[in-house]
Write a protein that binds this DNA or RNA. Structure first.
Lengths: 318, 318
DNA sequence: CTGCACTATGAATCGCTAA
DNA sequence: GTTAGCGATTCATAGTGCA
């Protein structure tokens, strides 16, 4: 069933709300609402227009000022995914990212794993004693060991080897055959017949996007998309507290989730609004944008309703 | 010029010395001798049957007992590369690796960068809330900001994605493409046409080897080989203080470097000796193996001579 | 000697059960 | 309660042996 049919049948739409303001106050009214917070905070010293210009030394402390609101906004079985990379300071890889994650862990977050976003096409360049930087961290933090994860949603195609391997099953392939070393591994090849997808790894290979959206640090839509599929269900709420040009919103609506984008820079909010209006807004996806001064309570309520219950109304398809 | 011809011309040989013992004492007589120390220390709690079991909590402290000898053994413009990975403890990614690197930095090491060894074929497995682990760290530490690095030695061919990308560019409507992109990225790509080699990134993709060398933790030869080419010159000395099955030695001799392998497990030393004898020993590569009790001073002296000066004999150039 | 069939196994993790 | 041990689960590649 394609998306359009699905929505026609389900008789509801997804929404993306863009709010201009400081996440630390804007998110206060979204307590316990998000299944997933996925974001790429302004890297230390990198985006001077954003918040204060944060020095690497002060970054961990600065980021901790968001801890309370992130914790309270996230549902108990939800996930927080932070895409970030250490900066090189004076020829040395700075450790402010480790410091920041350490602080979050001390504050109660569980760091389940460190995913690697691998960029097969890192920015061109040459430095005599530094290779091109081809990866960034995506830290997966949760409030509890019982969190939602659906690996099938991001399963990858099985390798070509299965075709040859499973043509004919030998005797040892018919039932479980234990490994002769002491690794504890064994295998039961017969279970693999017909398998098309396998579990993904924690290295996510996505090319760097070349487009400059008028924003200095666009991450590719595929990156939030991966985590949205892995760590949330349809119609749930995804939040990006440092929304930038709004890639998280694109990913959310494309995957039939609702989304709240917050950014304290008006220009970026506007860019995100234009981008979402152009790329994903349609009969089944609404995009709303409000300034700090405007009254948006009705839409907020609407959004809350939308992720809690499905709208009951008579929708006319086009 | 092939290796053999090269060695005939240079009229000397490379050597690999395998010493059984504790690196902390064995390396004392190799002060200021190594251009590169590349190693994979035993991971915390891993393989209890093969190593003394070090708990994750104690790992950083334990590793620091090697600091003095590593520092003194390395030349001032040399590099220390440590391949290691955090373990999962109680469902959470443990941070003993960060702790250990932090301690090394406090002790004076400069952590230039964090390389990622990406395994395209990670260990199989499925856990409801954990993806397959497809990467390990390789930390690059130095004593000084002026260290030796030769990126040309590890330049990689331009990947297929460039060809695809270029093809796509030509397929795209030219005006639309230009309007949607003023970052210069497209123009950069067009410059790459015909370029064969490109500077490598800090993500090194090497498949996991499935071969059992009689040692539980063989890393693929390509991994030390990458760092040997990048961070040392021919005929210099490479040291692996946790040699295991000797992959570093294979890589060193294949790349025309001298090598010292140290392991405190006699069986692994023997395995390494057999392996090197079989795979790389020839007219131009000598492999020596000594027990702790044996007298090996003459070979040590020889090795020291070998990496300091080339043998002076009547050389015939071709 | 080539090619195909088949074997072996690699720094794994979780959850249950018994002690 | 708490811990230690064991079974279940899993993908991709290299190597070996035989036709």
């Amino acid at each position: 069933m394609d998306k359009k049919t699905k929505y026609l049948n389900q008789d509801h739409i997804n929404k993306c709300l863009i709010l201009c303001g400081d996440s630390r106050s804007v998110l206060l009214e979204f307590e316990n609402s998000a299944e997933l917070i996925v974001t790429s905070p302004p890297y230390a010293d990198a985006r001077k227009k954003h918040y204060d210009s944060i020095s690497p030394e002060k970054f961990p402390e600065w980021f901790m000022t968001f801890h309370d609101v992130l914790w309270n906004t996230l549902k108990d079985d939800g996930s927080l995914v932070i895409n970030i990379k250490d900066k090189v300071v004076d020829g040395i890889r700075h450790r402010y990212v480790w410091r920041a994650i350490d602080k979050l862990i001390s504050a109660g977050w569980l760091c389940i794993d460190d995913y690697i976003w691998q960029k097969p096409n890192p920015m061109p360049g040459f430095w005599p004693n530094r290779l091109r930087d081809g990866w960034e961290y995506c830290f997966h933090l949760t409030k509890s060991k019982k969190f939602y994860m659906d690996q099938k949603a991001v399963a990858v195609p099985v390798g070509d080897w299965v075709n040859k391997r499973l043509q004919k099953l030998s005797e040892n392939d018919q039932s479980r055959h234990n490994s002769s070393n002491d690794s504890g591994f064994g295998r039961d090849i017969s279970k693999w017949v017909g398998k098309e997808k396998v579990a993904p790894s924690n290295v996510i290979t996505i090319p760097l996007v070349g487009k400059n959206m008028g924003h200095p640090a666009v991450f590719p839509v595929e990156l939030p998309s991966f985590f949205i599929k892995l760590l949330s269900r349809e119609n749930q709420l995804i939040i990006d507290p440092f929304a930038g040009s709004g890639s998280t919103g694109i990913a959310a609506l494309k995957n039939m989730r609702n989304c709240l984008l917050v950014d304290n820079n008006f220009e970026y909010c506007k860019i995100a609004y234009d981008r979402l209006s152009r790329e994903v807004a349609d009969l089944y996806n609404e995009v709303h944008f409000f300034n700090p001064q405007e009254e948006y309570q009705s839409v907020v309520n609407d959004l809350k309703m939308n992720y809690n219950v499905r709208k009951n109304k008579t929708t006319k398809e086009k």
